[in-house]
C-alpha cells in the first residue's frame, strides 16, 4: 500500500510537521492547500474554521 508521509524535518522532532500525506497512493492531506485539508460539518461556520480544529 502506498501510504506515505512527507515531513518538513526529522519525524521524531517536536517541531516537525507533515507536509503531505498519501493514502493508497492518493493525496489525502497537504498543508496549506485548502483543496486537500478536510473540514468536518461540525467545524463549518465556527470561529475555529479560520484556523482551529484540524
Amino acid at each position: 500500500m502506498a501510504d506515505v508521509v512527507i515531513w518538513d524535518g526529522d519525524p521524531f522532532s517536536v517541531y516537525t510537521r507533515a507536509e503531505r500525506v498519501y493514502i493508497d497512493g492518493a493525496l489525502a492531506y497537504e498543508r496549506g492547500n485548502e483543496a486537500v485539508n478536510p473540514m468536518t460539518d461540525f467545524t463549518l461556520g465556527t470561529a475555529a474554521s479560520a484556523g482551529g480544529a484540524e
Binding site: F42, T43, T46, A47, A48, G51, G52, A53, E54
Partner: peptide, 15 residues
C-alpha cells in the same frame, strides 16, 4: 489542545 472536547471549547485551535 485543539479539539472541540465540549461545547465550551468549540473554537479550540492550534497557535
Amino acid at each position: 489542545y485543539n479539539l472541540p472536547g465540549n461545547f465550551d471549547s468549540i473554537n479550540a485551535r492550534r497557535g
